[in-house]
């Protein structure tokens, strides 16, 4: 069991897309050594929130952030360099998005731009990342074929390997299994379970059963607000807020 320490602390976070406020006064603590799930209805701001952690919203014209996101106590919106932030905070998206390159190159790409030039070390790193993503055995004989020959579930694990290859500390996953069948989904969930001792994981999911299976902490978002956060077990069996209750029991019309 990894140590559970405070890793990310979000304080009074507001996010605006132009005139529209997408997140309101969010306060949340994310611990290492466990998985934090973000749940809530479509459009409530889960993906937006995830993107504030690694400053992906910076790329959206008109997006503006107020408040603080502290990573190990240091504000990512302060003097921290964005490239090194993104190296520390990896992201996996809903739809697998491999590059139009070989399987090997997909994984080697990140380390290479971060300065890893030694071919032997690069090969080791690729293998290690693919093993961590539970994909190695399936691709070890076709590393130099296009990533597009892989199935959707394999592509998603490739994207996870790609994210792991640059040695992040934190993994943000935005509905990583929503495009996958139940077996591929189970593999991703198993993977999340294995990775949680080494990484701080924040995962967005629409699937409440998935959230209950993979996460130890959970937060419920509604209309840009964080309504309630706590251990998954408390939140899912005995939520304190009526709105969480109505969402979890499917009573929202």
């Amino acid at each position: 069991m990894a140590e559970e320490t405070l890793r990310i602390e979000v304080r009074q976070l507001n996010l605006f897309y132009g005139q529209v406020q997408a997140l309101r006064n969010i306060n949340l603590q994310v611990m290492s050594g466990l998985v934090t799930a973000l749940v809530g209805p479509s459009g409530c701001g889960k993906s937006s929130f995830l993107r504030t952690i690694n400053r992906m919203n910076d790329m959206i014209p008109g997006a503006r952030v107020e408040g603080q996101v502290l990573l190990d106590g240091v504000d990512v919106y302060g003097t921290m360099d964005v490239a090194s932030l993104r190296k520390r905070v990896g992201m996996v998206f809903q739809k697998p998005n491999p590059f139009p390159r070989s399987i090997f190159e997909n994984v080697a790409y990140g380390p290479r731009i971060h300065g890893q030039k030694n071919p032997a070390e690069l090969r080791d790193l690729v293998e290690q990342s693919l093993r961590q993503a539970a994909l190695w055995d399936e691709v070890k004989d076709k590393l130099h074929r296009s990533a597009y020959i892989l199935s959707g579930g394999q592509q998603q694990r490739l994207c996870i390997a790609r994210a792991l290859a640059v040695g992040p500390e934190i993994l943000l996953m935005d509905e990583p299994a929503s495009a996958l069948d139940p077996i591929a989904t189970a593999r991703i969930e198993e993977l999340v379970h294995q990775l949680k001792s080494q990484y701080t994981i924040v995962i967005v999911t629409h699937n409440l059963q998935q959230a209950s299976r993979v996460s130890q902490h959970a937060a419920f978002f509604l209309a840009g607000e964080l309504v309630e956060a706590g251990t998954t077990s408390d939140l899912f069996t005995a939520p304190k807020d009526r709105r969480t209750e109505d969402y979890l029991t499917g009573r929202f019309g």
Partner: peptide, 9 residues
Amino acid sequence: HQPLASDLR
């Protein structure tokens, strides 16, 4: 139904 919250209780 894999109920949650008050439904589960």
